[in-house]
Amino acid sequence: MKVGDHEYALDGNGFLQEPQSWNEDVAREIARDEGIADMTGPHWAVVKFIREYWLEHDLAPPVRLLCKESGVGVRDMYRLFRSGPAKGACRVAGLPKPDGCV
């Protein structure tokens, strides 16, 4: 995936190969691939919380915390990110894919 002058490698599931290399432009590009043309305020609130939580805990946050901290309602969450918080939002936030059935 090319963003600006940089080439960013994605893994077999479309997740950023090197989560450290994430930045907002990369987020926008992955979001476009998710079918999100425009990253709005709520999108960023969700993505940034995921990012911070992950940097601290090395884990994707549960959707309960995500809703609480970002102020996005649970049903709205799936409107913002059609693939849901795991594959959709975590991917935009540049996390590695969570293990298991996602």
């Binding site: 994707a60 049903r75 799936y78 795991a86 059935c101 996602v102």
Partner: peptide, 11 residues
Amino acid sequence: VNPREIKFFPL
């Protein structure tokens, strides 16, 4: 349940 229902898809 599938744990993803707790963690990511509670609906």
